[in-house]
Design a protein around this nucleic acid. Sequence first.
DNA 1: GTGAAAGCGCTAACAC
DNA 2: GTGTTAGCGCTTTCAC
Lengths: 340, 340
Amino acid sequence: MSNAYNRPDQLSPELRKRVLDTARRLGYPGPDPVARSLRTRKAGAVGLLLTENLSYAFRDPGAISFLEGLSLACEDAGHGLLLIPASPEREDVASVHRAGVDGFVVYSVPEDDPHLAAVLERPVPVVVCDQPRLDNLDWVGPDDARAIKSMADHLIKLGHRRIGVSCMRLARGRNDGLASVQRQANASFHVQKSRLTALAESFSEAGVDWTKVPVVERFDHTAASGASAARQLLDLDPDITAIVCTSDILALGALNEARSRGLRVPEDLTVTGFDGIADAERAGLTTVRQPVLEKGRAAGRLLLETSEPGRPREVVLETQLITGTTAAPPRSREERWFGP
Amino acid sequence: MSNAYNRPDQLSPELRKRVLDTARRLGYPGPDPVARSLRTRKAGAVGLLLTENLSYAFRDPGAISFLEGLSLACEDAGHGLLLIPASPEREDVASVHRAGVDGFVVYSVPEDDPHLAAVLERPVPVVVCDQPRLDNLDWVGPDDARAIKSMADHLIKLGHRRIGVSCMRLARGRNDGLASVQRQANASFHVQKSRLTALAESFSEAGVDWTKVPVVERFDHTAASGASAARQLLDLDPDITAIVCTSDILALGALNEARSRGLRVPEDLTVTGFDGIADAERAGLTTVRQPVLEKGRAAGRLLLETSEPGRPREVVLETQLITGTTAAPPRSREERWFGP
DNA sequence: GTGAAAGCGCTAACAC
DNA sequence: GTGTTAGCGCTTTCAC
């Protein structure tokens, strides 16, 4: 009978049909998937752990593209994709324990996330995407430092020396405001940290005192946050010539804020982003594009391919500086006040 | 030991800690979720069945909002969301059989979908969203007939009598072209069918011979398809004054096609949509808005609430006619040729 | 508070 | 091609 369901080739078609018909007539609903999983030690599904509320994954364009890529890989392998409810507020790790999956993809979570710890305890393969960087774990992501360095160099070449930075959440706790150099250094979100570090390095080399550069952090990753961050930066120092954002969403918000202040971009203010989401490219944002869909697909593939244990793999994705229309040489203070 | 993991209150904290520490030291990875599921008969997850390739779900704005709502409901209940790989091409139903879930949400699939049949065989609750309408099954969706009727009445009142219709897939087989009245009647996608039926009814009442109204069908749900459908309609009958689309995506494509033909909307051509996705409202499309996110949430809630068996529930969502800027009274043939 | 045992439904192995 | 059986790892129950 098990054969009738699982190995059609092991018995004659008519017998198979007879068995199946009888089973159905008796009200047998087919093999129980959970019992089968227990026996075969295969769940046929991949678990996805996100930092945010589940629903956030469907609101962030980057996350959506990532999911698209990941689902492509899962589909190719005939695997399901289990989205694990793990809100940052709730410390409830049970959902990770309950997940019947053959492995986990961890997407951009802080190193000290309790859900991550729970995932790592499970005896199944794990692939990390973006962050955190952990030894012994497969990883896929862009070379963040190198990518943002290309942006920094671009801005430095344009002549910007007095800048402000708008960045995403640096740690699990909410902090909407200035991020001290110390907070930057202690960030538990590796991606943000390495972007800031690379920015600091580039601008320091160009003679900028990084301790004087205002870095404003926002917990929520929305355009509204980006606008308020830009507002804070411009209030703090109206003479900054550029706002460097560590994501396109924040940059799009900054663009809105500039507009509502009557600042022309890029004449009065340069704004840059990171990611290369569709909305940003549509808006002509100067940004760094990373292949987000490909990232998801690579993460899925890595997880579903068998790997040699003890030899963590690494997929580094190419990034590309997109010169849009939101970055230009800064104007002198006088020009800014009195027009062209 | 089981108690240590599952019922912290049943034993003293220090004992619990001792047990857990020992377990960890012995390399015990925590209770196996699959075995637990088998025993408790609970998977802690909801399965989602879609018509399309999984990845499509992340490309269609409507599907994305639906998923957002569904994930909200799942998260509230601490349940995971398992996306089931069920491409329309592959007839492989195994993924449904393998899904370790407590119930299924079926999102907009045709009545003759083999995956749906497989879902219905499973002894777990099922909630259908949009289509198909089946007796004995919980259902959530808008009143499609009534919703599109409000649009039809709007167009009739504006004076449109010579229209073309652009609709989505009517059956599982690909058919990019005219859909005969018979094909309309035999459609296995209930939503499209009831929209067409309601349109036919309204326009017939207004004196239009429905058998003469060109209805063009497209398999792929993309703006490009919408554009090509509009092209076909306008080639077939350049004198139509309105293109009624059964989705916003198709309508957005029709808008593109109108633009590239030099037709002004709404002066030369009226275009209408259905759904109320953000892009459409941004474009000023005249459309019918349905609360897509709410639909997903309602489906999830329905599934996770315990229901009285044998009494199928029904959630009918409110829709709203959005009068945008893409519908206006038709101009006479002369006006159309010679300008205002 | 502890320990032993039954059994969830399946598949794989092996004997017929 | 068929029938029987052990055991996947857990939770629950019951006896202590």
